Amino acid sequence: MMTRRLRFAATFLIFQIITSGLLISPYGFAVECYDTITSPTLLSKEINCPLSVDTPQALTIIGPSGSLTMLEGGKVSCTTSTSESGKPKVGVGSMSAGGWAEITEDGEVTFGNWTQEEVPEIQERTTYTVEEKMNLFRVRAGVLIEGSSANITGGEIEGCPTGINVQGLGSHTITGIKILNSEYNGIIIRSSHNKTSNNEITGIIRPRGYGIMIETGSDNNTINSNYISATSGAALHSQGNHTTITKNEIVNNQGHGIVMAPAANNSAVIHNQISFNKYDRVQVHTDLNTLSVNTITHNESRGIIMMNAKDNTIKDNVIIYNKTFDIVDHSQNMLCTNKVNNWANNSIGDTETAMPACLKEQ
């Protein structure tokens, strides 16, 4: 349906240009690897762009004037070569010179085939934190969004370290995109007031990889009606305040479903379908959130778990057929008399599905 709408919109646009006798279209059509897009642009072909230190993004969109609409056949892919060990290279140093790096599950990095002239800032350092190591590679993306109020719509992004890196001042729109087989993140959000909707994110390869990652300080973002599946880490990890997470389908992931990290206060998780995932479906480490009208079923671990969280409202959810407990609140006492969080009118399993057990009566 989404593809049909995009095809119709493109056909109608071209028809208008021809029948009105306009010689100049407001849309640009010629898109090549490493372009910076600052005006409305259409992409109707696949571009395959090797990424490196010098070219860390396949495309950059700068708002407010920049936008990209990918029509049928429009696709951005990132070349991934392999090191001598057979592991994926991630482009440290010059790709033409064969610079590469490997990351283990613990974040250990081995650099190979590079010189101090190629990457002096790496050569000079002998130790890195895990986060620093991961950030060396997560900045590489199929599409980087900068400025404010930029738009990207339709098409596919495949095989990039991160599918879309959302930065700048924010208020960007990301909609209707298939993001396939990213190494680390489908979408990483590093700004505020963005809208991410109707995207399909599948196949995050590396451990700790996220379908959608919202970083600390990225507030008032809306995540709506996305499909997220086959991620190695959490499908959706939020560290931003005032995040709205609604009507998403999160299924068959190897990590958690939704994680609300300690910085993610005053957020809403409403009307989501979360099923057949490996670990906790909704894990909350923060305060003053609302979790309502979600369906959380058939997961390998717990349904909703409160981890040192308070003043949250959890109501009107269906949380059943989860392997261990349907609902867990580590902030409540065993009699549920301290009322740290507000549990109300949730449908859960019949026996031994709540911890503490008194949560069933809330």
Score class of each variant (00 low, 15 high):
Met2Ser: 11
Thr3Tyr: 14
Leu6Gln: 11
Arg7Gly: 08
Phe8Cys: 03
Leu13Cys: 03
Phe15Ala: 07
Gln16His: 13
Ile18His: 11
Ile18Cys: 04
Leu23Ser: 11
Tyr27Met: 06
Gly28Ile: 00
Ala30Arg: 13
Tyr34Gln: 05
Ser39Thr: 09
Leu43Tyr: 07
Glu46Phe: 01
Cys49Asn: 06
Pro50Phe: 07
Leu51Pro: 03
Ser52Cys: 08
Val53Ala: 06
Ala58Asn: 03
Ile62Asn: 10
Pro64Phe: 12
Gly66Ile: 02
Leu68Cys: 05
Met70Glu: 04
Leu71Phe: 13
Gly73Asn: 07
Ser77Ile: 01
Thr82Leu: 11
Ser83Val: 00
Gly86Glu: 06
Gly107Gln: 05
Glu132Arg: 13
Met134Pro: 05
Asn135His: 14
Asn135Gly: 06
Phe137Gln: 00
Val143Thr: 08
Ser148Lys: 14
Ala150Gln: 06
Asn151Ile: 09
Ile157Cys: 01
Ile157Phe: 05
Thr162Tyr: 08
Gly163Tyr: 02
Ile164Arg: 02
Ile164Asn: 01
Leu169Gly: 04
Leu169Phe: 10
Gly170Val: 01
Ile174Glu: 05
Asn181Glu: 11
Glu183Gly: 09
Asn185His: 15
Ile188Arg: 12
Lys195Cys: 03
Ser197Glu: 15
Glu200Val: 08
Thr202Asn: 09
Arg206Leu: 08
Arg208His: 15
Tyr210Trp: 08
Ile212Trp: 02
Met213Arg: 13
Glu215Gly: 01
Gly217Gln: 10
Asn221His: 11
Asn226Thr: 02
Ile228Asp: 00
Thr231Gly: 06
Ala234Asn: 07
His237Glu: 09
Ser238Pro: 02
Gln239Tyr: 14
His242Ser: 13
Thr243Ser: 12
Thr244Met: 08
Thr244Phe: 09
Thr244Lys: 12
Ile250Lys: 00
Asn252Val: 00
Ala263Trp: 12
Ala264Gly: 07
Ser275Cys: 03
Tyr279Pro: 04
Arg281Asp: 15
Arg281Thr: 13
Gln283Pro: 04
Asn289Gln: 06
Thr290Ser: 06
Thr290Phe: 08
Val293Asp: 14
Met307Glu: 12
Met307Pro: 01
Lys310Arg: 12
Asn312Asp: 08
Thr313Arg: 12
Ile314Ser: 01
Val318Glu: 13
Asn322Glu: 09
Ile327Asp: 00
Gln332Asn: 12
Leu335Ala: 10
Asn338Leu: 08
Ala344Cys: 03
Asn345Glu: 09
Ser347Gln: 14
